[in-house]
Computed example of a mutant assay.
Amino acid sequence: MAENSASMYGEGTPCWADAQLPDVEAGKRFYGELFGWTFDGEDAPGGSVWARLDGEPVASLAPKTDGRMPTVWTVYFATPDARALTARITEAGGRLISGPFAVADLGAAALVTDPEGAVFGLWQSDGHRGFGRRHEPGAFVWTELYTPEPRAANTFYGDLFHEALFGSGADPDFGRALITDVFPAEMPAHFLVHFRVGDLDAALAVVRRLGGRVQVPPFDASYGRVAVVTDNQGASFALLTR
């Protein structure tokens, strides 16, 4: 399903994803071939590049500013007021990592964790609304929270994002699962960004050819058939087909 890039996302809706990478140029080659993305630096701050699908923004790749930072994909949830939401998150047992801070004239961002330590972002839109396309091959389609405490997560995120998750017409693109459903018990709580592909087996072959690896082979989930992979720099993400 194509989305108009000018559309607004309600609070609690996944609205953006970025990858922090040691080598952005290598990331452009990997994701460009895997998903058919094109890239430009127009309006993208801090040396990052925007990934586009048919001209619409679908993600960004950013250079790691500190080698100690993880190589990782981060999902951002929309909010009309990042400062107020960060206060609610910390009051509920989460933690503020950074922000909220202005991102050029595009909006304001913050990085936070839930009480179990899963990292996610907040995005308060100004000039940049978020995904221009989603739910279609080559675009974001889902994010899954893997946590040791799914019931506690349901309470935490339900209180934060009740309308997005449970309101009329809710389209959350967001699920919760026990870590041991897919990952070893020692894996920390985390969000896993999913991109849709038309042919999962063909996409996995491309990942391997480009130097990535299959972290979790294909399995059936309630929201589609999924495989967890890493890119050629170690950032984990999922491929999903429906």
Score class of each variant (00 low, 15 high):
131 F>Y: 10
108 A>K: 15
125 S>Q: 12
46 G>D: 13
232 N>F: 09
145 L>Q: 12
240 L>D: 04
128 H>V: 02
37 W>I: 12
32 G>N: 01
24 V>C: 03
141 V>N: 11
18 D>C: 08
159 D>K: 08
202 A>L: 08
17 A>W: 05
55 G>W: 12
170 A>L: 07
105 D>G: 06
93 G>D: 04
94 G>N: 07
57 P>Y: 01
67 G>Y: 09
209 R>K: 12
21 L>A: 10
86 T>G: 01
28 K>A: 00
10 G>Q: 12
33 E>A: 07
74 T>D: 06
109 A>K: 08
103 V>H: 02
196 R>S: 09
111 L>K: 07
201 D>V: 08
148 P>A: 08
121 G>E: 11
148 P>W: 07
61 L>I: 08
226 V>N: 03
88 R>Y: 03
199 D>R: 14
29 R>Q: 05
227 A>K: 05
71 T>H: 01
36 G>M: 04
4 N>E: 13
233 Q>A: 05
185 A>M: 07
24 V>T: 10
96 L>Q: 07
80 P>C: 07
38 T>F: 12
57 P>K: 04
15 C>S: 06
178 L>Y: 07
37 W>Y: 06
224 G>H: 12
216 V>L: 05
220 D>S: 09
234 G>L: 09
156 F>K: 01
29 R>D: 10
180 T>Q: 14
199 D>W: 14
134 R>F: 07
4 N>P: 09
228 V>K: 08
211 G>P: 01
189 A>S: 14
107 G>W: 05
61 L>E: 14
67 G>C: 03
42 E>Q: 15
